[in-house]
Write a protein that binds this DNA or RNA. Structure first.
Lengths: 207, 207
DNA sequence: CCAGTTCTGGACTTGCGGGTCCAATTTCCC
DNA sequence: GGGAAATTGGACCCGCAAGTCCAGAACTGG
């Protein structure tokens, strides 16, 4: 049971909490801050999240995980050509720009902190990575089937490397306050994918 | 002024705090826990770190940054051959094994949390990455000079990519509880370095 | 060995933040 | 329109953890 108004309030709480977590970190975000930021009262917080802060943080993590993947669609599901990869790269860079931090910063903030604190977050993040990885793998597999990658390319490993580059690059970017590391890491890694393109066909006459 | 005994106590506090931070996270590590773990009293904590917890955490971060780099030496300073890179890879994997977390986990724990909380940590981490990056770049530059890499290789970018792979791989490993992602990311990225090796000299007779 | 400093133990204060409670109000559905 | 259920406000409690304080022990240099 949850009326339209109730659902709206709940969503508002999650959004506000995500914002605060992204800015201040999970531990430094107190319920009273969330209350103030969302124009709610303490009782509402516990009405919608009876188990308190941990449940709320978990909901925030779920929401952000969803959002992060959603923001990459439909590109993420169609990484089956070099053009698609290029567009995706640009999208990733744009999403990691200093701005709002619509989920990105929030998730990473949680990933650094809550795994030890909030039960379930670790599993959630693992699942998140898994889904992301699966999408990359799917695209690479399609490319291999299309002859854009050599038959002996290990798409699984390549996908892992790309994902690691994104995570690592983003983390370095957060620390240095620049998008350059992410841009470089992504570019280099996707360039690496290209080294797995089959050799150009020998000149028609030869062999 | 700091007697021998005093210095020992201070070091003990830092080490104990680092341990706790690695396990529970910075926010969840309370002074009383540190006190208990190091067999000290509250007054000692504030005697050696008058500014309290933030100062202590910063000291921990400094110590770990030092240690992380130190653990990689002397290999880190001699990455000027493919053999050296291979050994370094293995060392990194070993250091990121589940075990003790001698600095590794601590630093990453801090990097995810304290930048917003403890002033100075962000700068410290940026410096840490910078030094690490410089060492990688130095090795690659030497290799390029030795003809192990093509002249047009961008050693700076390559170093960034390697570093991102390490960071991202380690992060994914922490979440999934496996060293596989790091191993894969590192392997793939170092393999990429190899694609920048100059083409093998054409067979002596030919051309 | 003896001042002066450094080091140590532990009790105490204080504020903050998570969580509880209940009474009032609104919304939903019939 | 009326009653049950969902929603809201805000005062209150409580424990924990940061930080303070001071008295006493241990160490240092001359």
């Amino acid at each position: 049971m949850l009326t339209k108004k109730g659902a709206a309030t709940k969503a508002r709480i999650i959004a506000g909490a995500a914002q605060l977590v992204a800015v201040k970190g999970a531990a430094e975000t107190c319920l009273d801050g969330i209350r103030a930021a969302t124009g709610t009262s303490k009782s509402q917080l516990f009405h919608y999240f009876p188990e308190g802060k941990t449940q709320l943080l978990l909901a925030v993590a779920e929401d952000c995980s969803q959002r992060v993947l959603e923001q990459q669609r439909p590109l993420l599901d169609g990484l089956d050509s070099w053009e698609a990869w290029e567009q995706w790269q640009e999208l990733i860079l744009r999403l990691n720009a200093p701005g709002d931090g619509d989920g990105y910063c929030t998730l990473t903030a949680l990933s650094g902190q809550s795994p030890q604190t909030v039960p379930g977050v670790r599993e959630l993040l693992a699942d998140h990575l898994e889904r992301w990885h699966a999408a990359l793998t799917k695209g690479l597999t399609a490319m291999r089937a299309d002859g854009l990658l050599r038959e002996d390319a290990d798409v699984d490993e390549l996908a892992t490397a790309v994902l690691a580059a994104v995570q690592g690059g983003a983390m370095m970017g957060r620390i240095t306050g620049s998008t350059a590391p992410l841009r470089t890491a992504l570019t280099v890694t996707v360039d690496h994918l290209r080294t797995w393109a089959p050799p150009p066909p020998p000149p028609p006459a030869a062999r």
